[in-house]
């Protein structure tokens, strides 16, 4: 009984002392300490992954934050995050900005602020070749995705009869697909393409043309951190104008890569 009482007291204590990290002026803070701390993916080519030779994190997301840091005149410190950990990390002040394939949506926008979209893709599936032609084929099947992602919520809504298995990150879900533990892996097409390109047995898999949602990616910042959000938005719009944004896209997804993706979007101010 005593233990329960103590527990209740601890919880009450937590209740009183809890205060979410305040959105100060990140822009000023970052300039002062000379480092921009970025939450990024570390095993999701080509957005953010460890380069085998240099042992450093590189990718599309990384190039964007590098450009922002360069404009600020500060260094970049990269912190690997997962889909589930990135928002708490930001709110608690462990990181200053999220550049981790994060979809902008209304639910998240209640808790954090987003930049304009810097990448656009849509949620699709990756499956064994020829096994899936329409959403119907996935009913009642086991589908893998990542914890805390929009993909998880979208697929649960799109195919209610499916069993959704959430892994820590997408490559693990794909590994489960390769081993036959799930029938499909679902997330944004660009991520799927990245995984497929790296897969050792890519010939056996395909991405059928079934899209269940649009996924615009935004850089995440603390709620109400207006100066910083404005600065980031201004920077990425300039990058679009100068052609730098397009160059980054071409570098990671263009014809010289394994992906051959068309750039179907331009970074523009949201309405």
């Amino acid at each position: 009984m005593k233990k329960l009482v103590t527990l209740c007291m601890m919880v009450a204590l937590a209740t009183i002392t809890v205060k979410a990290a305040q959105a100060g002026d990140t822009l000023a803070d970052v300039k002062k300490k000379g480092v921009l701390t970025v939450g990024c993916k570390d095993s999701l080519p080509p957005f953010g992954y460890i380069d085998e030779k240099s042992r450093q994190i590189v990718g599309y997301d990384i190039d964007f934050v590098n450009a922002i840091a360069k404009k600020l005149g500060v260094k970049v410190e990269l912190k690997p995050v997962t889909s589930a950990s990135r928002m708490p990390q930001l709110q608690e002040g462990h990181i200053d900005i999220i550049a981790a394939t994060m979809t902008k949506n209304a639910e998240r926008a209640k808790v954090i602020d987003f930049s304009h979209a810097y990448f656009l893709t849509g949620q699709k599936f990756i499956t064994k070749k020829g096994s899936v032609n329409s959403l119907k084929d996935l009913e009642g099947k086991r589908i893998g995705t990542a914890k805390g992602s929009t993909s998880e919520k979208n697929v649960a809504a799109a195919i209610p009869s499916a069993t959704i298995l959430s892994f820590d990150d997408y490559p693990q879900a794909f590994l489960a697909l390769m081993q036959g533990k799930v029938s499909a892996v679902t997330t944004d097409e660009a991520i799927l393409a990245g995984i497929l390109a790296k897969a050792p047995t890519k010939g056996q898999f395909e991405i059928p043309n079934i899209q269940i949602s649009d996924e615009p990616y935004g850089l995440g910042m603390r709620k109400g951190d207006t100066n910083f959000v404005n600065f980031v938005n201004k920077t990425i719009l300039e990058m679009e104008k100068s052609g730098e944004a397009k160059a980054i896209f071409e570098k990671w997804f263009g014809p010289t890569t394994q992906f051959h993706l068309e750039r179907t979007f331009k970074i523009s101010a949201d309405k």
């Binding site: 570390d42 095993s43 999701l44 080519p45 992954y49 460890i50 085998e52 912190k79 690997p80 995050v81 997962t82 950990s85 820590d168 990150d169 490559p171 693990q172 794909f174 590994l175 390769m178 790296k198 897969a199 050792p200 047995t201």
Partner: peptide, 23 residues
Amino acid sequence: FIVGVSELTHVATQINNRTMAFP
């Protein structure tokens, strides 16, 4: 590993995620 600290197990999952064929 769960909170993204790059100790041995996390490093192993990173490499596993990248190479995929050798778990």
